[in-house]
Write a protein that binds this DNA or RNA. Sequence first.
DNA 1: CCGCAAAGTGGACACTGTCAACACCGGAAG
DNA 2: CTTCCGGTGTTGACAGTGTCCACTTTGCGG
Lengths: 213, 213
Amino acid sequence: MATSRAYHHGNLREALVAGGVDLARTGGPAAVVLRAVSRRAGVSHNAAYRHFANHEDLLAAVAARCMEKLGRLMLARSAAVDLPDEVAAARARLDAIGRAYIDFALAEPGWFRTAFCGTATPEGEARHDGPSHDGPGCEGPGEGPYAILSAHLDELVRLGAFPADRRPGAEYAAWSAVHGLSDLLVEGPLRGLPGAELRTAVEAVLSTVARGL
Amino acid sequence: MATSRAYHHGNLREALVAGGVDLARTGGPAAVVLRAVSRRAGVSHNAAYRHFANHEDLLAAVAARCMEKLGRLMLARSAAVDLPDEVAAARARLDAIGRAYIDFALAEPGWFRTAFCGTATPEGEARHDGPSHDGPGCEGPGEGPYAILSAHLDELVRLGAFPADRRPGAEYAAWSAVHGLSDLLVEGPLRGLPGAELRTAVEAVLSTVARGL
DNA sequence: CCGCAAAGTGGACACTGTCAACACCGGAAG
DNA sequence: CTTCCGGTGTTGACAGTGTCCACTTTGCGG
């Protein structure tokens, strides 16, 4: 395939994306600069143009990588839940992925901001434009936050712990609440909210959406 | 005062901000470029440096202007509610400002994205850093979305339509839900959601938060 | 009437994304 | 084994940006 075999550098595309992720961690999307990542990879600028159409394309790849990190944290936190009661466990898992979302935003604001740059499409194959994709951003199933949230909600209705007639649109409600708080905290007017008030906000958002679903 | 008297241009600072708002409308924050706004004002670049410390400062002024527009729409929609029952009216007004928030984001995505650029401080005086400000972003009271939302929630508890013990943090819950949906729709993975699904999402978010508060 | 500070100008610098033309190098064809 | 050729990386250039500096203009107060 196109980029898997070794070439001059070893595996430049991977090195560029990894460098971009590094830069994004501290500087956000604005820090993933074409010439900077090229420099960091020990390669001259314009080399990146053999692997990415343009700066936006490179940024999209970095963004997808950040989105994967978010998804992985959510899955890990969900898997760490261990409760005897199935229903209680499912509820706890939903809560856990919500907290994971917010925690990720607070712990890695650069990655979080980068993840939502220009509707990141995952690093994989070209975006199939057929109407057959299963969720926003065309994330691979089970990978992206949207798919993870969907699966958790499905589990809740399967257990009868969530009325099926209220299921349509539930992802939007849960996702919006958690994403909105994260965005307001990381790059919005709620940035730098003192710790106590921050805890209040997190609990208010999570409990409100849990009650309202 | 510093910039109120007439000078060469007439009132350059105002012209620059207005031009920035124009550019932001179609191009978002990235379009409010120092040299471009200067050009549009019929003035050479560097002239802006007599009125703004740097590009970020100009962008903050433009962002504050956009935030005001959002607040004005919310107030207008709230004032348009006319119901005989006080409680029903208060509830309807809360719903109205939420819809106004989302509508603004959808109708003016450029302004919406610009409004939340670097924790906009309003155009007014320098940011007082004492701990005495009343809300995030130090918006003038009654002006910014946060203050408007707060007032509406206060009205609800005043009417006894909302348990006072659940009041702390309620702004965060409501604001996060509405802001999160707007952000996901405007520049997130939900961008370009088809109309029917969009309506589902809006209703799900608003009804869930209304139920959960 | 004069002078001085505020307001605006022109030029320069470093940096960015992007394009075009060139240099390399390794594997496939002969 | 030689030869070519396409993928890979390089050099150089251009337009555009934010910012600093020195300079000029302008209008008001003494």
